[in-house]
Amino acid sequence: MMMRCEILTLALGRSRLILIFYRYSCSKCFYDSCRPGGALKAIGGRCMFWQQFWQQLVNGVTLGSTYALIALGYTMVYGIIQLINFAHGEVYMIGAFTGLIMVTVYKVNFIIAILAAMLVCVPLAILMERIAYRPLRKSTRLAPLISALGVSIFLQTLVTLIKGGPNPLAFPQVIQDTVYVLGPVRFSTVQVLILVMASLLMVFLQFTVKYTKIGKAMRATSEDYEAASLMGINVNRVVSFTFAVGAALAGAGGVLVGMYFNSIHPFMGVSVGLKAFCAAVLGGIGSIPGAMLGGIFLGIAEVMGVAAGFDTYKEAIAFGLLIIVLLFKPTGLLGLPIQRKV
């Protein structure tokens, strides 16, 4: 038993994820290997492992909630006009830069920085919709997509030019970073802040969509665009509002991520945008709870994947997961099945 366990643990190396299942199947020998001289000594033993697990879970949820904030923008826009707004990542990037300018130049408190970022992103997104997407609403599926890519390239270059180069800028520490210890887990202030802000914004969004008039109009429009406009809903206003809400969330997300990762650059929206879009599709595009679930799921998967030793494949984890999920549930976790109309 001991022998087999040693070999297994050695073979698994740093794959802590697999060890979770392993521990349940063979808890005694796992304990043995934790003792001095055991094969697991290098990674710190069992207690270390559980501490790691909970810690990584918290980190994953934090990362995931930032993905979720951005994914909401994708999912709402898609739900209403079936457009993949590839420039949404750039809105998030501009939010982060606005936050940076606010805290470094105007020396404001981070709450005001977040509000300012939201205020800048909202008109930007509305303008973007007016110029680049509205004229194309009735055309082919690919035309607005290409237009979105154009907007995305335009904004990236614009920010690079204004900033004077693509190298990353350091985001200063705006809040005292204390560490709270809760059982085996350590939270930093920024992490708590991200979790609180993200949940508040999401609750607020759910409330808006469920109980306000414009929220009802949004739901009606996403249900049936034509019928909604026939029922007297100003569809153009609804679309603008959707873009505005998505942009506000992305702007807030940008500042929070800037504070968490401490560094921002003009191309930061590309990979985060793609992953957030993945999260939206994973959860079922068009579904608001789906985007939240997808974002958090993706965050956890990414962090756990890295912890399990797939660190060099980090960028591929999100997409691998997405492909696997889509193959089994072709419209995402919470998506409704596509109806084939004959």
């Binding site: 990674i43 710190g44 980190n59 350590r186 968490y260 990762f261 401490n262 660190d311 060099t312």
Partner: peptide, 30 residues
């Protein structure tokens, strides 16, 4: 560690059990 990673608690925790004079770090500044 990984590029663009921000949480190094696992790596540092395991360093805590060792005695050493300094760290040779071959990555980037961030």
């Amino acid at each position: 560690i990984m590029e663009k990673d921000t949480n190094f608690s696992a790596q540092v925790t395991s360093l805590r059990q060792k005695q050493f004079d300094g760290v040779i770090f071959t990555g980037y500044y961030t």
